[in-house]
Design a protein around this nucleic acid. Sequence first.
DNA 1: TAGATTGTTAATCGATTAACAATC
DNA 2: TAGATTGTTAATCGATTAACAATC
Lengths: 209, 209
Amino acid sequence: MKEKKKISNSVIKRMPRYYRYLSTLKQMGISRVSSKDLSTRMGITSSQVRQDFFSFGGNGLQGYGYDVEFLHGEIHKILGLDNIHPVIIIGAGSLGHALAKHTDFAKSGFKVVGVFDIKPELIGEKINDIEIMHLESLPEFIQNNPVDIAVLTVPENYAVEVAKMVTGLGIKALWNFSPVELNTPEDIIVENIHMIDSLIVLGYNLNER
Amino acid sequence: MKEKKKISNSVIKRMPRYYRYLSTLKQMGISRVSSKDLSTRMGITSSQVRQDFFSFGGNGLQGYGYDVEFLHGEIHKILGLDNIHPVIIIGAGSLGHALAKHTDFAKSGFKVVGVFDIKPELIGEKINDIEIMHLESLPEFIQNNPVDIAVLTVPENYAVEVAKMVTGLGIKALWNFSPVELNTPEDIIVENIHMIDSLIVLGYNLNER
DNA sequence: TAGATTGTTAATCGATTAACAATC
DNA sequence: TAGATTGTTAATCGATTAACAATC
């Protein structure tokens, strides 16, 4: 993958949004779109749209715009949405349950293959055909099943410890829902969903209004 | 609130993280901290920490560092964490349930006062003493109860419509969990938790590794 | 005092926006 | 053709980092 020119992180972070909107257009049977159009719907400038697409060769046509189908396909490729990533969820509380039930992730290639917890009363329960297993059986599970991503929906005071455990077992990517900094080694990829942070910023903006 | 000098958005977004870490330090009985210290734990530069604190008067002491208690208090004030924000949740699916059950939000001043859905079988059910009400009763509810923030955990195809409805009822802030752009009027404050976007970026980084 | 560490300015870097020639 | 809209460079803006005098 290294030979590709690097797309900047800020652009990558906008990609899923572009992708979502292009999916809608595709569904509506719309075949072309201008940077102007995209920009107003997404609340950014058309300059930025063009700059973004230019960074990976969006193949626009002067006087015409961009081909929805092509652009959609390009972003699909860039984001690697064809890849299937086996995912485990650690922590089968209500949030863990909600994520396990959420079938939409599978549409983007993220397939939940296991749910783990330590509470005896949860073990054996099934969520969407996936059995909740004891965290102790995780090492064995990983030996028999490839796992790309661990979702951390454990209580905050366990998060660091569990992160250490799963990265120790070879998992390279964490999707962390606990409101803590994981401080993982460099080669571990982490994405945080710090819900409370987002809510606090919302509250701040509301206060400042 | 306008007389205060504006703190940049990027700084504000880092605030909850600072705050969390300072809370930990406080709990551990640590009374001072240097920008160096904070920076290594948070994976940023010490220059940035100083710059950030300088922007709101962190009151550091040369040769000493920052007073944990003071800094904690300042950020608490800036973020307005003393304010109580009444919150309603719209959409009592598994995610709505999970958020309603999550008592930690209350610790930061966000108090869930109502949960709404349209599914008959859910109406009347209680989550943490909060009864699920029919969405039709929302207008009446809002007349009798102040509501600052609406959490949108409705299915994606309802999100825009529901957003329109609640902002029409006077709610000024939306915490949106649906993977759509809401395109709300200027004066409506929106924070998105686009989970799938985050997961896709995680997948991208994993592919690029 | 000497060492540590901030406050604060300046330099750098990167991202966004503007502009317009190219061209469909 | 004339109008639209991109590709692409340049300008601007803002955020991050570096530097170091001030000072505890």
